[in-house]
Amino acid sequence: MNIFRLAGDMTHLASVLVLLLKIHTIKSCAGISLKTQELYALVFATRYLDLFTDYISLYNTLMKLIFLVSSFSIVWYIRHHKIVRRSYDKDQDTFRHYFLVLPCFLLALVINEKFTVKEIMWTFSLYLEAVAILPQLVLLQRTRNIDNLTGQYVFLLGAYRSLYILNWIYRYFTEPHYVHWITWISGLVQTLLYADFFYYYFQSWKNNVKLELPA
């Protein structure tokens, strides 16, 4: 464990808690893409299959449980909570996210580190996580302006992956044989997807204006 990875995990945790807090307190999911949340629940479900088989550390197990519970409860809130579901704008959240699942799965079948069920599911979860934010970014473009909690959510999500890239660089130089090209490339693609959002988020923060995304 290094400081970059710990900071990354904490940032990731913060992004999920910010979202849960928003939905739970103001009982609204306006501006949140259910599709992205469903993709994230699938990412965690397919990545943490080893939750009960490989014990790595208490921290690892605890964080996996938190991510699983929080991502599925966010999906539950938006889908089934009698008040929150009313604020879900399904006419705007129209990204066909199932078109993301299949290519990621096929790619995981072809490009992986080991052709085993667990490894393929793990690789699938990596590719899926890289594109999971797309429905949310499309929704933000559509709804033009975003409230600051959603902006913070996407910002924290992008920041966590950027911190992970620093973690991979650190581990590459400090641990012999630590090479995971698949993880590195998919993590880089994921961060690049956030890049333009980051640019507009930073501009709005610097000029102290409401975040507006160009259509």
Partner: peptide, 10 residues
Amino acid sequence: TTQEQTHDEL
């Protein structure tokens, strides 16, 4: 032997 590299990251 290539030590079974379990994924230790979240």
